[in-house]
Amino acid sequence: MVGRRMATVVVAIALVVGAFFLRRNVIEGGDDEPDATDGPDPAAELVCLTELAAVCRGLGVPDVRIEDAGDTLGRLAEGDSVRLWLTFEPFPAMAPQPLVAGDVLAASELAVATPEEYAAALTARCADRAVWDCAGDLAGEQWEDAPGVVKPSVGDAGSSAAGLASFASAVAGYFGTTEFGSVELQDPSFLAWVRPFIREVPLATLVGGTPLSTMLVRPSAVNVAATSDAEIAAVGAPGEGVDSRYPEPSMWLQAVLAAPAGADIPQDLATDAAAALLAAGWDAPGASQAPLPSPTTMLALRQLWEDVQ
């Protein structure tokens, strides 16, 4: 009798353990709990660009993943899925399986910031020239009428969406047009210009920061910084000591929500995101806001950046 009871208990324990095993390894796939540092979180509802982290956190979405565009594109290339992506145009179309972007939620013009004490020197050196074209020529040279060396930075175009956008803006400044493609990017004169431009500010200098935030704490490391109106508004610059100007030709960051083909973009989320962006210093979308180059050109720019790095 005792033996049968014991056998029953053993079987019951085995069933309970088996149920846990089944749930953990079969139904849930056997993975450890996901965490912020241990690979992708498949349950994340919304993936946001690092540049939009503050807006994203305010949307009230329970599962949010914030990462650089380069990381998201890398995950998508490895077959991961993204349910919704708050990003810039044309990044959704740069994925191997392009995502479909909704309407532009808000826009912000790309800009160039310098410490005030360098502004006059930059103007003097770059009169009548596109600012990025000129800054690229001067990269690494001594400033005239200002201390130190010309240190331009667009950020990390290999991983950051704003970095790649600003790199596109700088290259457009060199060519004097937004109409350039992979053929122009092979031009030897252009390559001679772009290499010192890319290499003057090592990426290690920018770890954890943007060109603007780095410039504000360390102008000896970056003193011609790519930025946007929205970032300037977010950090409270230009205020004391910072000058900003718009490079020619003009380009705008355009924030969008994107989803896999066939999936819906929740309208209420799009409305909330647009409102949050406007509150954060972004502009309402408009017809005259020149977009970034095509997905193909952006991918070519990214490849060029990584090759030169």
Binding site: V149, S220, A221
Partner: peptide, 10 residues
């Protein structure tokens, strides 16, 4: 606080 003006690369 205005210094340094020239930074060396690591």
């Amino acid at each position: 606080p205005a210094q340094p003006t020239t930074e060396l690369e690591v």
